[in-house]
Amino acid sequence: MRELKILAVVTFFSVLIYILVEPFAHSQMHKHVEGHNFTYTGEADIAEASDEKKAVKEKFWSEVKTIASLKGDATAGEAGFGMCMGCHNGANMNMGGAIPPNLDHAGAIYDKNYLIALIKDPAMASNVDHKYADTMMHPMGSVSSMFTDDQSIADVVAYLLEKKAGEVTPKEAYKEACVRCHAMRYANLTQLGETPKFKHEKDALAHKIKVIDEQDAVKAYMGKLPPDLSMIIRARSESFLETFVENPQSQFPGTSMPRVGLSAEGYEKVKAYLTEIGDPSKPERERLGPWVLGFFIIFSILAFLWKKEKWRGHH
């Protein structure tokens, strides 16, 4: 009885320390940012904006809403998509700072509202308009001059959501959404994508130079080289990653990372990849855990019986 009382006291203080130095301290150290489940209505952007920008943003996002309510025609959108392919052509060439990503699964990983906003005004959609005096300076900025009427935007987006929305693997999602900026060395990925195996050192070095050139271009575009994301899943909390990817400005006001515009499903895929690379033991932990705990539970029961036997007659 007394032992249980002592155990209760020890447990109480241990748990108290744990709560204070872990959940409580972290809640005080990091600012709390409310997520919005990967929907993009511009609400946060408008709230954060300076007074002079507020009206522009309000107008922009209400127009996005109008376009979203239009019925898009995927067949008509196919022609428009041809214009996207002018840049998103798979040539893996840097264009104004970054390599235009492959759009094969754009309909599956990006949010509809976001795509509309992106075509209307990429800088505004990504919430990095403060970096540009006028839209045209964004590397994809000229798109807004190609799609001037609302219906054509609705059509392209309908096309993406219908024809470019096939099953996407976590790796493809990462490569389409993040790799143009973020290398991932534990997965053999650079800003140029997968590093091939070279037979000759000379070729390997030549490739390395190409990678460095690409990184320099990204650096010039972003102001700094975006970090390698190999271990990011363990280096940041779940809620930080989620809210940061949703709207980087919410966590780091003024940061150059643009909003990526993933849908909830798209983010799940990217997160699955970050986990696969940064925390690969997760499935094995879950498999092995119960066995090890089971072993020690049985061990303790046997040890208890042994103890009872040894202490017989002692009290």
């Binding site: 705990l293 020690f296 061990f299 303790s300 042994w306 103890k307 036997e309 040894k310």
Partner: peptide, 13 residues
């Protein structure tokens, strides 16, 4: 020791 080992078992859980 028999008690130590029991306590250790619980601790290792």
């Amino acid at each position: 020791l028999s008690k130590d080992i029991f306590v250790m078992g619980v601790y290792f859980i």
